[in-house]
Nucleic acid binder design. Structure first.
Length: 404
RNA sequence: GGAGGGGUGGGUGAGCGGCUAAUACCAACAGACUGUAAAUCUGUCGCCUGAAAUGGCUUCGCAGGUUCGAAUCCUGCCCCCUCCA
């Protein structure tokens, strides 16, 4: 392996490696490493935020290392104590299994399945006894756990911390012991948990795992970490036009982060992009389109990316109607000359373009509903068969009249 | 065991007998502007009826009660949090 490749892997998108020197030595020694990554099966959907770490795993796999994917079916019941997360409903075993399947299906779009070992926490925690729990917890102190920033913040703010939440890092640490992880991967927000694993391994007399932390991907809102609950995410499962559009909707300020964390576009090129942006020699939109193509290509195909781009140019940039759209078939009152009189409310409601009748009225009064570029001011319209109704910028509906 | 605080629309959070379908902020949606995005300005933002003024229905943890009238008062219940021990 070239030094250049290794540098790329150790630097691109990486927030911190603990301890980098140790990891380098192991890599140089040609050791086949066990790379740990856990996931929470209470949420089956993978978005680009997860992809950042997954891509890194993939890069290591290409060097011949082994990924160990932990299905966190026990920790899922606790809920990651990130901030003020509400207590989640307990999932049944079947739900967890179904979620895990969905998750893995998406996970293996990026990570090589052949070089991945999947382990369920229930394999070891399922037979954990109280004695085991006490033995595990006795190794740590409250002060140690309160060292974690969000615990200490909550504690000093007088906000609740559930005991199970304190247990979370311990369980995650124990996973590392069981699978004898050499490196644990995660977002930088996982630092504390990963370090606990390192510590526990040492107490038990195992070699300590290295901790490989990736930068967090900011969501499409440009404010907060990408997450499903905030709705600022781009899902792996998003269809090409949607995925492309969501990428285009990120703020310009995130452009380079996305390139860095989600693509393999070489550093050299990225440096040029940065320079051009700084000199205002390029329209950010142009680069963003490149980014969107890169991403759609990864999860779909080159053709899909091209189609998504032309769809975007047509619908969003040129404000034209897309080629494909929802279609509503209904019966209308016949007027002369192939024209029909129709109340569009039902059509819009039935096809989910609006939520209520009141919304239709509101939209009309705001001039948001158009037919052939003409704003309408009444829900009853006289139109020929096949007319397209546009609601706002992106909602379209084709009306087809059913002849009685 | 004791003391105290609280449960309000997608979120935060005011209101504390009629002027309240419920302030404000955020999110969302629409319009204008525009280079994708952002920013800005304007408007909308429970459901139904009506062209509209209007009207009806449902909503402030749950169940009852007081009252001409309750998110607001009373009773019971459920849930959450903090502090002391």
């Amino acid at each position: 392996m070239s030094d250049k490749r290794l540098e790329f892997i150790l630097k691109r998108g990486v927030a911190e490696i603990i301890v980098e020197e140790e990891l380098r030595r192991q890599l140089e020694a040609g050791k086949k490493l066990r790379l740990k990554m856990g996931f929470d099966p209470s949420r089956p959907d993978i978005h680009m935020g997860h992809v950042v770490g997954m891509r890194k795993l993939r890069q290591f796999q290409e060097l011949g290392h082994q990924v160990v994917l932990i299905v966190g079916d026990w920790t899922a019941q606790i809920g990651d104590p990130s901030g003020m997360s509400q207590t989640r409903p307990m999932l049944s075993a079947e739900e967890v299994r179904a979620n895990a399947d969905t998750y893995m299906q998406q996970f293996f779009k990026v990570v090589d399945k052949e070089k991945t070992e999947v382990r369920w926490q229930s394999e070891w925690f399922g037979k954990f006894s109280l004695a085991d729990v006490i033995r595990l917890t006795s190794k740590f102190t409250v002060a140690q756990l309160l060292a974690r920033e969000d615990f200490s913040n909550r504690y000093s703010a007088g906000r609740p911390i559930a005991i199970t939440e304190l247990l979370y890092p311990l369980l995650q640490a124990y996973d590392s012991v069981v699978i004898q992880a050499d490196v644990e991967f995660g977002g930088i927000d996982q630092k504390f948990n990963c370090l606990m694993g390192r510590e526990l391994q040492q107490m038990i007399g195992q070699p300590r795992q290295q901790v490989f932390l990736m930068h967090l991907l900011v969501g499409t809102d440009g404010q907060q970490k990408m997450s499903k609950s905030l709705g600022n995410y781009i899902a792996v499962e998003d269809l090409p036009p949607e995925m492309y559009g969501k990428v285009m909707s990120i703020p310009d300020s995130l452009l380079m982060d996305y390139f860095e964390l989600l693509t393999d576009v070489p550093e050299k090129e990225l440096a040029e992009f940065r320079q051009q942006l700084a000199a205002q020699a390029v329209n950010p939109m142009t680069l963003k389109k490149r980014l969107a193509r890169e991403i759609v290509t990864q999860f779909h195909s080159v053709e899909a990316a091209r189609d998504a781009e032309s769809h975007f140019e047509k619908v969003v940039q040129n404000k034209e109607a897309p080629e494909k759209m929802e279609q509503y078939t209904g019966i209308a009152f016949v007027l002369a000359g192939g024209v029909y009189r129709l109340d569009i409310t039902k059509a819009l409601l039935e096809k989910g373009l609006v939520k209520s009748r009141g919304e239709v009225k509101r939209l009309i009064s705001q001039g948001a509903i158009e037919i052939n570029g003409e704003k309408i001011n009444n829900t009853t319209v006289d139109i020929p068969d096949g007319t397209i109704i546009q609601v706002g910028k992106r909602r379209f509906l084709k009306i087809s009249i059913k002849k009685a």
